[in-house]
Design a binder for these strands. Structure first.
Lengths: 285, 285
DNA sequence: ATGCCTTACGTTATACGTAATTATT
DNA sequence: AATAATTACGTATAACGTAAGGCAT
């Protein structure tokens, strides 16, 4: 059987041009490499080199062998990489969510329930169901229930948007507010891809939005700590540094409410049972 | 580096289902194979097996590894095969011809001029020039000259068709004959693909043809040794067992004559020079 | 001279075998 | 009992290193 170390040696010779240089790069001695290449030729039953008195050069067959060797070794590398990636995925719980809020709650819960797993998460407005089916996600958070063969879906909790302003803000005394009334104000909002963020952008075309993940946010907060924020029940429940002087005004539009659902593959249902159970009671207003 | 013998062992295990059976097939002992598989896992840094007390089973990663291993080993096999084929081609002179006749002359000449080479030849009405360019042929015989960059062409010899009948045949006294006059007769002709054969079929739609390569020919000759044959100068020059009572009647149609040319790749011109030289003088009628 | 390859001989690493043990069916 | 896998220890193959020599530039 032709072994990969021989193909590696062949490629080293191809790169270096001489046996001695290749031997040095491979941490071998010249005689060792010389014989190893002879053995390769013998195993193949084909001459790969023109052996002149003081120099060996690849012949046509040798060059052909090099291209094959490159392909084979890259396949071997690919194999190792694929397997390591797969191994990694076994030790990772990947959560995809249509909104950032649920992740604030689910990530710490998952981390404590599965202390041996890495928790990876993404907020996206892409096709989460497709990602779940393909194995890109182990669990997804949707704003509507799913009934599909092979998937398991369970209601998670409801959520509601608030406009958050500092006490003393012109709107601070309002009992509720609508998108129409807020249109034009600048907000700090959740990351792009978050469904709430998308909703705000759609509903308030005259507003400016600064995204949480954006470093500019720090500048804005520093310059004007009174810039309003849009927040929600889940975010408030899971944020420990709520400003003392923050006032949360419920947003009255019906679109500002949602029910979230957790979905996983049926085959993994048992594995994630702990995560599906014992949700906190909804926040008391 | 992952070595191919390990991948082979993995595939043997995949085929056999147990280490002991695989070890037997590989002419190894169980402990040896057991450790070899452990080393493979260590090198990859990935578990490939579920190790139960009394039994090892491939896990998901292991099955993934099997598919990669199959691909890699088939690539290695392919490499060896390609190289051996190439090596073979270096020791073979492959001649493609539009007609069988020239091969009767060229093959023995080539065999004696290049005693170390194998001579391979084919008669075809396919694209000989394309085959020459691609390296499928080293030399081709055409019925017309070629002027093309990278190819070398030289006139070879002319040829002329005859109707061959036994003495006493109704046509035996003719000085010449035309296709139109022969249309309807049954012939034994050269193999399919031969340009003369194609010509006869086109010119004599009412005739039946028995091909030389066809075993039926033996039956026909046995039953009726007077079945006419179509032959040519080159064939007559190179056939030693011409029947004593054979009469060869020239075919009068102008299409029954041809000039053959030898063509090789310019880069091989030197190599084949001996074959291009010292053709026999044309046959005296 | 110096660089490059090879031959001859000795050495080491590692893949393999043997024997014994454990566990499962 | 029979089958399967593993552990522990010894062995042998073959890949490798060292020393020396030839043959070029």
């Amino acid at each position: 059987m032709i072994e990969n170390y021989q193909l590696e040696q062949l490629l080293a010779f191809y790169d270096c041009g001489t046996l001695s240089a290749a031997a040095e790069r491979l941490n071998l001695t010249e005689p060792s490499l010389s014989r190893s290449m002879r053995r390769l030729e013998e195993k193949l039953g084909v001459c790969l080199f023109d052996r002149r008195k003081n120099r060996v050069v690849l012949n046509e067959a040798g060059r052909l062998a090099v291209t094959h060797a490159q392909q084979i070794l890259s396949c071997v590398e690919e194999m190792a990489q694929h397997l390591r990636l797969y191994e990694q995925s076994l030790h990772t719980l990947t959560i995809g969510s249509c909104a950032m809020g649920p992740l604030l709650e689910l990530r710490p819960r998952a981390a404590s329930l599965y202390p041996t797993l890495n928790i990876s998460s993404a907020v996206t407005d892409g096709d989460l169901l497709q990602g779940l089916r393909r194995g890109e996600y182990d669990m997804i958070v949707l704003a509507q229930p799913v009934e599909e063969e092979g998937l398991f879906c369970r209601e998670y909790r409801s959520d509601r948007l608030y406009l958050a302003v500092v006490r003393g803000h012109p709107l601070a005394d309002r009992k509720s507010i609508s998108f129409a009334e807020m249109d034009g104000i600048s907000f700090i909002v959740h990351p792009r891809g978050d469904m709430w963020t998308n909703l705000l952008i759609a509903k308030m075309p005259h507003s400016s939005f600064f995204f949480h993940e954006n470093p500019d946010v720090l500048m804005i907060v520093a310059q004007d700590p009174t810039t309003p924020t849009v927040t929600s029940d889940i975010v408030l429940d899971n944020t420990y540094e709520v400003r003392a002087d923050q006032v949360n005004i419920p947003i009255s539009d019906p679109e500002g409410r949602a029910d979230f659902y957790l979905v996983c593959r049926e085959e993994d249902r048992k594995k994630w049972t702990p995560l599906f159970q014992n949700f906190r009671p909804p926040r008391s207003c």
